[in-house]
Amino acid sequence: MSSPHPTAHVDYLLAVADDALVNAQRLGWWISRAPQLEEDVALANIGLDQLGQARALLAHAGQVEGAGRSEDDLAYLRDERDFRNVHLVEREQTDFGVAMARLLMVAAWQSHLYAALRGSTDATLAAVAAKAVKEVAYHLDHAGRWVVRLGDGTEESHLRMQAALDAEWPHLEELFDGSFLDPALVADGVAVDPATLREPVLSTILAVVEEATLAAPRVRPAVGGGRTGRHTEQMGYLLAEMQHLTRSHPGATW
C-alpha cells in the first residue's frame, strides 16, 4: 500500500473546509433578509457554525501543508481553481425555499460525513468533526422543519418548495463523487470514501421530502468538478467579493 501524497491530504481537508466556508458566505447574505426576524437570528447561527468549521479545517490544512499558510491565506489568497468546494454551495440563492433545500442537502451530507470522520486517523480532523457533528445536527433539524412547513404549507409554498428542490437536486450527486480523492487516504483512515455516504445521506433527505409531501426530483445529475477546481461562473464573483479588500492591501493585518 502506498502512503498518501501530502497534497492529497491537504486537498481533502480543503474540500471539507471550502464547502463550509462557501456555504457560510452564502448564508451571510440572509442576515437582514430572512422572512421573519427570528429566522435572521437562526440563519446567522448556522452561518457562524459553518464559518467556525471552515476556520478550524483551513488552519489545520495549512499546518498539514507545512508552508506557513494561515486560515486567512487559504481563504483570501487562493484563486478560484484552487478552491475545492462543490457546486451545490457556491451558487447564488436568494429564494428562501432554495436556501432551505440546499441547507437540507448540505446538512444531511455533513451530518453523515462528520459522524464518520470522528473516527479519522487524522486526530485534528476527528476532533473538528466531533464538535461539528452536533452543530450540523441542528442545521439538519432546522432545514428539515422548514422544508416540511413549506412543502406541506400553502399551495403556493408547495409549488415553490418543489421547484427549489428540483433546482438543487442535480447538484447532490457531486458530493458522492470520490474520484478526486487519493485512495490511499481512505485506506489510511484519514478520509471517508464519499460514495459510501450516498445511501445514508439520500435516505435522510428523502425522509424529509416525503414528510413534506414533496416528490423526489427525477433529474439527471449536473456535471460537477468543484473538487478539482472547476467551478460555476458564479464562484468567481463570490470570491471577488469575499477577497477583494484583503487582496487590495497585501500583507496588511486586520
Binding site: 466556508l21 457560510a24 458566505q25 451571510g28 447574505w29 442576515i31 437582514s32 435572521d40 437570528v41 446567522a44 447561527n45 452561518g47 457562524l48 464559518l51 467556525g52 471552515a54 476556520r55 483551513l58 486560515e71 486567512d72 481563504a75 483570501y76 467579493e241 469575499m242 477583494h244 479588500l245 484583503t246 492591501h249 496588511a252 486586520w254
Partner: peptide, 18 residues
C-alpha cells in the same frame, strides 16, 4: 459581512449583526 477582510472579522461581524 461578505467582504470582511479576515475570517475572524467575518465571524465577529456576523455575530454582531445577529
Amino acid at each position: 459581512i461578505s467582504r470582511a477582510p479576515s475570517l475572524r472579522r467575518k465571524a465577529i461581524l456576523m455575530a454582531k449583526v445577529q
